[in-house]
């Protein structure tokens, strides 16, 4: 069984209102160092699947390539 960590975030140029709100809040709290916040999804997938098949799952369902980028990280089982 393989494990994959999948990170889904908005594509560049797509406004992320939740991220912008969190970023503004951090600024108001005095964290002047914050340049931007991007809020996305983290998906843990366990499957008897090769990377190519997981990529297909991302393209078809787990992410929407019209608005989102995804990054798949295969996880070594301890």
């Amino acid at each position: 069984m393989a494990r994959y960590d999948i990170y889904v975030t908005y594509r560049e140029g797509i406004f992320d209102p939740a991220g912008a709100t969190a970023s503004r809040a951090l600024g108001q709290m005095g964290y002047d160092s914050v340049k931007s916040v991007q809020i996305g999804k983290f998906i843990q997938l366990e499957a008897d699947a090769e990377l190519a098949e997981v990529t297909e799952m991302c393209e078809k369902l787990l992410a929407n390539p019209v608005i989102e980028d995804y990054r798949i990280v295969p996880v070594e089982e301890a």
């Binding site: 797509i14 406004f15 209102p17 939740a18 709100t21 929407n64 019209v66 608005i67």
Partner: peptide, 11 residues
């Protein structure tokens, strides 16, 4: 149809 529908800007 083209495009996508995101969360409302004002959340």
């Amino acid at each position: 149809l083209e495009g996508a529908l995101l969360r409302n800007r004002g959340l």
